[in-house]
Structures are given as C-alpha cells and as structure tokens.
C-alpha cells in the first residue's frame, strides 16, 4: 500500500535526521574541548600559526610543568580550590539535608516552613552581585578577607538552595509511615534521620554532594571578590593568564584542562538526579 510505503519513508527520514543531529551536536560539543586539551599539550611556538595547527607537531607537558612549578602559586590555588570545594560540600550537604528534613516534617505556625523553604529558593534567583559587595565589606570588617573561610561560607550559602530543595523533594516522597514506625520503635528525630531517612536517600545525597562540589569548584564571582590572592581559586587563576601583555595560551589551556577534567568525570556520576538538583526539585526524572 502507498500509505505504508510513505510511512516507512517518513520513518527512515526521521531516523536519518536524528542520527545527523546527534552526530553534529556531538561534534559541536566535543571539538572545542578537544581543541583545549590539544592546545594544553602544544609547544608554545605553534599557537599563533596561520592556519592554526590543530594537532601539535609533538606533545609536550611543559605548560603543566610551568603552571605547577613550585616557585609559582598555582599549587596553592589548586589546594585552595580543593579545600574550599570539599569543606563547602561537607557543610552544605550536612546542614542542607538536616534543614530539608526539618522543613519536610516540621509543621510550624503561619506556614513558616513553606516561607523558609521559599526563602532558600529565592537565593537561587537573585543576582549574587548584589550581595557580593556587602559580603566583601563584611569579610573585610571581620578580617576574613582573602581567606578560605570567606569563600567557603559564601559557597555554602550559594549551594544550600540546591541541597535543601533537592533533598526536600526526596524527603517529601518518603512515606510518613516510615517516620511514624521509627517513632514508635523508639527513635527520636536524630535517630530517625540518621538510621532510617538518610540510608534511604543516599543516592540523592550523593547527587547533592556532587552538585555542590561542581558549583563550588566552578564559582568565580564571589571567589574573585573576596579571595584576590592568598585564597585564590583555580577559576581566578585561569583568568589571570589574560594580561595586558596578551594571553598566555599554553598555561591557560593547561589550567583550564585542570579545572575541566575532574568535573567531567564527576558529572558522569551526578547524572542520575542532576535535573532534579539543577531545577531545585521542580523537574523529576
């Protein structure tokens, strides 16, 4: 039948289109990354050739050696970034999931629980530049300027909305009978949280941790304002290769690669609840 035939043709057309789109999008996404990684391994004299040399004549690790030279501070920046990310993640996930559990189970008067939850939500949406300056001055007054603590505190507050809302949606989904059952079994809130609720939401907790780590690791605005030198993080270090005298392509590529590669690996694990995390629980997979 003719209809049958056209239908099959349409199907073939759709599939071809689909495959073409997928290949094209993969190319568009991966080529810049590949270019970055290749550049980080490229000898310095091959950067400004015309036409550009895509594959370097030989691979060299000199840019990596250059940025991790013990006489330079890059190692410090790396340590700063690691410390800030790890501590931020631990604190944010801990106090965020506790708060989420409380908000999920606690009935406060005047719908206060919803209002507090909403306040966390708003933090996600207002311009951080508004609080950056006063936060800078606050840290200056507290003599915390250019310390890891200043960045950590700010990062915890920035990542809390994600943790709170991600966990809130998971806690809300757990049947309340589990809580009640544990309550009758003799558990107080803390025991319920640790022995019953957390083990049941471990994957979500992990997602929250990875998401928090990504956000903290990548954050630029606040870190750049309160941590200009001693507590400088990697994203700032990258931007510092852009100087008035021009751009140091090699080291900048190497540094960018250092920032990007661990994140890419982590992102593979965060897939599961990434959407729910990024949309603060509003969209569920």
């Amino acid at each position: 039948m003719l209809d049958e035939k056209t239908n099959r043709l349409v199907d073939i057309g759709r599939n071809t289109l689909r495959i073409a789109v997928i290949i094209l999008s993969l190319v568009v996404v991966s080529v810049p990354f590949a270019y970055l990684f290749l550049n980080s391994l490229k000898p310095p004299n091959e950067f400004l050739t015309v036409p550009p040399l895509i594959i370097p004549s030989h691979f060299t690790l000199e840019h990596y050696q250059n940025i991790f030279d013990p006489t330079k501070d890059t190692v410090n920046y790396l340590i700063n970034s690691l410390v800030i990310t790890v501590v931020t993640t631990i604190i944010a996930v801990m106090i965020g999931s506790l708060a989420a559990y409380s908000l999920s189970r606690l009935k406060l008067p005047f719908r206060l629980s919803s209002i507090i939850a909403f306040a966390f939500l708003l933090v996600r949406f207002y311009p951080k530049i508004t609080t950056t300056l006063p936060y800078f001055i606050l840290m200056k007054d507290l003599h915390l300027l250019d310390t890891q603590a200043a960045v950590i505190i700010a990062h915890v507050s920035l990542t809390l909305p994600f943790v709170v809302w991600l966990m809130l949606t998971f806690f809300d989904e757990l049947p309340k009978e589990l809580d009640q059952s544990a309550m009758l079994d003799g558990c107080g809130p803390w025991q319920r949280f640790v022995q019953v609720i957390l083990p049941l939401t471990t994957p979500a907790l992990l997602t929250a941790a990875i998401l928090t780590a990504l956000l903290s690791w990548n954050e630029f605005l606040i870190a750049s304002s309160v941590a200009p030198s001693n507590a400088k993080t990697l994203p700032l270090a990258v931007s510092s290769f852009i100087t008035d005298k021009g751009v140091q392509w090699g080291p900048m590529s190497a540094m960018s690669s250092v920032i990007v590669i661990p994140v890419m690996l982590f992102a593979l694990f965060a897939q599961r609840y990434l959407v729910r995390g990024l949309t603060l629980g509003a969209v569920k997979e």
Partner: peptide
C-alpha cells in the same frame, strides 16, 4: 503498630 503499607525499612 502495624501499618497498612507495612512501613518496613
């Protein structure tokens, strides 16, 4: 208490 949904851990 035994719950309708059992509420097993």
């Amino acid at each position: 208490m035994v719950f309708q949904t059992y509420a097993l851990y």
